[in-house]
């Protein structure tokens, strides 16, 4: 469904991603792993369309979208949860979620109650400003904002980074549930936790120094341990 071919991304003059080809099949959870600074977030951002200087091809549902802007991709069904959450700080929680609906085709401006079942805390806090929430709550909000438009491809960039353990569990639970319930939705997940990645992903890519150095549907600790450890 999503295909990257010979993706090359550079910041100014320096090339940070070279010749990355990967694909995400419909309904699959694909996990992108690797140490810090190897280019995982850059790949995700290139897929979402917020970087300049992207060469190669990005193909989604048979359509080449390499040069399309991010808002076009969002309307095509991309849901994005960036690293650092990037919620709109001065907008209320409710407004943040409803902005997630911008990408959805039906223009009825009401929030699916399902979202609140995943994250009940957001309903309690719906009139608070997004910037006043704690880090974990902001992360939940960012995920809810991406989910509310019923995306066909969900891009999650380290959704559990720097968050208290019980919220990490909640988030992991939600990802698993999306995988089970919404068989139409594909997920591309950047994740550091070995165990969680193993429990949820159908396919793995490991990135090192801007290239894909390992791929497979199994993650065997002996083979990949060296690529992931510091």
């Amino acid at each position: 469904m999503l295909q990257l071919q010979q993706l090359e991304v550079s910041y100014e003059e320096s090339i940070v991603i070279r010749d990355v080809s990967l694909q995400v099949k419909k309904g699959d959870v694909v996990c992108l792993m690797g140490r810090n600074g190897v280019g995982k977030t850059t790949i995700i951002k290139a897929i979402m369309g917020i970087l300049q200087n992207v060469k190669g091809q990005i193909i989604y549902q048979g359509e080449e979208i390499t040069n399309k802007p991010a808002n076009y991709r969002a309307r095509k069904g991309f849901g994005f949860v960036p690293q650092g959450r990037d919620i709109f700080p001065q907008l209320t929680v409710y407004e943040n979620i409803i902005l997630g609906m911008e990408a959805s085709k039906n223009k009825k401006q009401s929030i699916d109650e399902e979202i609140y079942q995943y994250f009940p805390v957001l309903k309690e806090m719906k009139d608070r400003r997004g910037g006043d929430l704690s880090g974990g709550q902001q992360q939940q909000l960012a995920i809810a904002r991406a989910l509310v438009s019923k995306p066909s491809l969900l891009l999650l960039d380290e959704p559990t980074e720097g968050i208290q353990p019980n919220i990490v569990e909640d988030i992991q639970h939600v990802i698993k549930e999306i995988k089970q319930k919404q068989s139409e939705t594909s997920i591309l997940l950047v994740e550091q936790s070995f165990d969680f990645a193993k429990s949820v992903a159908d396919y793995f890519y490991i990135v090192d120094k801007g290239r894909v150095v390992y791929e497979g549907s199994e993650l065997i600790e002996e083979q990949v341990g060296q690529l992931l450890s510091v």
Binding site: M48, I50, A70, N71, A74, F80, F88, L99, E102
Partner: peptide, 8 residues
């Protein structure tokens, strides 16, 4: 940037 990512 995020605004364009939600489809605005």
């Amino acid at each position: 940037e995020m605004a364009s990512c939600v489809g605005i």
